[in-house]
Design a protein around this nucleic acid. Structure first.
Length: 398
DNA sequence: TCTGGGGTCCTAGGACCC
DNA sequence: TCTGGGGTCCTAGGACCC
């Protein structure tokens, strides 16, 4: 068993293969042999696609219009968030049978530190294969696993192992694995940074590794420069920390909406800002947080996007206060006939509601709104979210 | 009928304070 | 009649991730 090179690579990155599509196929096995795209909306993007659809060039984040053109005979299904969330929770529980050191990244991926599990379960590679078999048996879907000594390496390995595979990158093979790769494969290097590095003649991770850190910092900033230089040598300086998806307080909460068609109608836009404010504030109250900074996002028809933010004297979770701040920010833009594609509302600087103490200068009125919100929340819990809506949203002529 | 929605973090300039 | 240097907050934008 000493031939198994994974003994010195105790970090696993597990990534579900085409997660939303795989879950959809599990519910609808008759679609197993046809291209399937998960997505929706006429202005939406691809959320996930099975591997049959990928053969036609369909990828996550591709505009649905292009996806349909690439693969006209694909079956398009809407995402089933409830089932996806349930399957995700089960899979994460499977991971915790291996080790409590599970760091959930998103619904479909997690890191596992298996250092403390090898005596009981065998080598990291053995554990990886057990996980893949167990997930497949219990959930009927496949996943891929990267095995390495560092988290970023494990993540890059799982990407290379897809679909339905395992890849071990032992410490002795880090540079031979890493250095030939394009810089764009590094976690944290997206389209823009990749293009900039290419312009500088830095195409591979090996190029990065042999560039002085100072040079990198000048090109992409101190933080990213240092990060990239370390990464190029396979060191991300991070440890897996136990983290379950939803148990950390959010730093911000927001909601966006892309209009069915671009609009310059202030009434339509104001009504949308109210809807979004109500949605965000409702989620904040459910999470028992309040926030001080309200940001409005506006995307024009040409896709350029701007934001305007305003920090309130005190944190709030009141729909009307968030809405009024948002509307003032929007009106402050002074847009005349600009056609908007999207508006968004976000609240930042969240703190637990219990720590917020109202000065009460406008106490009566604000207390009234706050009480109204809570009454709405209770009614929605009992009768469903459509039961109670702001009056302005009921008279929707559209 | 090109390009969603949910987030996080970083940068940079200016205000303001000591 | 000269221009330092932190630290923090606020605002706007941008890159990135899933």
């Amino acid at each position: 068993m000493r031939l198994d090179p994974s003994w010195d690579a105790p970090v696993l990155h597990v990534d579900m293969d085409a997660f939303y599509a795989s879950v959809a196929l599990r519910e609808r096995p008759e679609l197993r042999d046809v291209p399937v795209i998960v997505g929706g909306g006429h202005r939406g993007v691809v959320l996930s696609a099975n591997y049959l659809a990928r053969e036609y060039g369909v990828r996550s984040a591709l505009p649905m219009t292009r996806a349909r053109r690439l693969c006209p005979h694909a079956v398009v299904v809407p995402p089933d968030y409830d089932t996806v969330t349930a399957v995700s929770a089960s899979v994460m529980e499977t991971f915790r049978r291996v080790t409590p050191l599970v760091e959930v990244v998103s619904l479909d991926e997690a890191f596992l530190d298996v250092r403390g599990s090898t005596r009981r379960l065998g080598s990291p590679l053995t554990i990886a294969e057990w996980l893949r078999a167990t997930v497949h048996d219990e959930q009927g879907i496949t996943c891929s696993v990267g095995v390495a000594a560092a988290m970023t390496l494990a993540k890059m390995a799982s990407r290379r192992a897809k679909p339905d595979g395992v890849l071990v990158v032992p410490p002795t093979e880090v540079t031979s694995f890493l250095h030939p790769l394009d810089v764009g494969e590094l976690w944290g290097v997206g389209e823009k940074t990749q293009a900039m590095l290419h312009r500088l003649g830095l195409r591979t991770v090996g190029d990065l590794a042999h560039t002085p850190e100072r040079t990198l910092c000048r090109a992409v900033g101190d933080s990213l420069g240092r990060h990239l230089h370390r990464l190029a040598w396979g060191d991300d300086g991070r440890d897996v920390v136990e983290r379950r998806g939803e148990d950390e307080p959010d730093r911000s909460m927001g909601a966006n909406e892309t209009f069915g068609r671009d609009t310059d109608d202030r009434e339509v836009i104001a009504r949308e800002l109210l809807r979004l404010s109500a949605r965000v504030a409702g989620r904040m109250r459910a999470a028992e947080v309040a926030g001080r900074t309200v940001t409005v996002r506006v995307r024009f028809a040409d896709f350029t996007t701007i934001t305007r933010s305003r920090t309130l004297p005190e944190a709030t979770d009141v729909t009307q206060e968030i809405y009024h701040a948002a509307l003032r920010l929007y009106d402050g833009l002074g847009l005349q006939r600009a056609r908007l594609r999207l508006v968004g509302v976000r609240v930042e600087g969240l703190t637990p509601r219990a720590t917020v103490h109202r000065q009460g200068v406008l106490g009566e009125r604000e207390h009234g709104w706050s009480e109204a919100d809570r009454a709405v929340d209770r009614a929605r819990l009992r009768f469903g979210s459509a039961a109670v809506q702001p009056a302005a949203l009921l008279a929707d002529p559209a």
